[in-house]
Amino acid sequence: MTISAITLGVRDLERSLRFYRDGLGLAFPGIIGTEFVADAEHPGGATAMLSLGNGLILSLYGRDDLARDAGLTPDRVSGSGVSLGWFVDARDTVDELLERAAAAGGSVVRAPLERPWGIYAGYFADPDGHLWEVVYFLPGSAPG
């Protein structure tokens, strides 16, 4: 199995786009689907898709539209029941990304620290509470 996209339900598409594109610097090819406007039966189609590399897409989709599309209530597609891992190549990059996330409107959930299993990592949450762990593998501890 190959995961091609991770879709986050967001309250405000433009705000989330600014956070990920302008704040964190993710590549952004554009918002698609704006011609599909939500109605009583159908979700809207406006989605921002950002490139995470290796072909993986981070899709930002209105929370209400995502819930309607999946046949769920909006509370089922909110918050953070998972964390997304962002592996970086330098220890300083962990600190830099956490600072950028906070400056862009997110929050640092846990300041970075060295863990006994060989990582230096910290957590941030985006403006909708989606949890990210930024991880640097200490020398000799990288997976695979």
Rank of each mutant, 00 (worst) to 15 (best):
T47R: 05
F137K: 01
A102V: 06
A70G: 05
G122E: 08
F124V: 02
A102W: 01
A104H: 03
S80Y: 09
L58P: 00
P43W: 00
Y61S: 06
G118T: 10
V94H: 01
L84R: 01
G118M: 13
V82N: 11
P43G: 09
G144M: 09
L17Q: 11
V135F: 00
F124R: 04
I32A: 13
A40I: 11
G33K: 02
T2I: 12
G45A: 12
A111C: 02
A46N: 02
L56D: 13
G23E: 03
G106C: 04
Y61M: 12
A121T: 02
L17V: 08
G81P: 13
G30E: 10
S141T: 15
R11A: 11
H42D: 05
A67Y: 03
P74C: 13
R76N: 09
T73E: 13
I57D: 07
P112K: 06
L113Y: 14
D95S: 02
T7F: 00
G129M: 02
A27T: 05
D126M: 07
I6L: 13
G44Y: 08
P112W: 02
L50F: 07
L84D: 00
S83G: 03
P116V: 09
G79T: 10
E96S: 13
V134S: 04
G45M: 14
F19A: 07
P143A: 04
D12T: 12
S51M: 03
G71T: 09
R21Q: 12
L97T: 04
D75K: 08
G129D: 09
N54A: 11
D89F: 00
P139G: 15
A70Q: 14
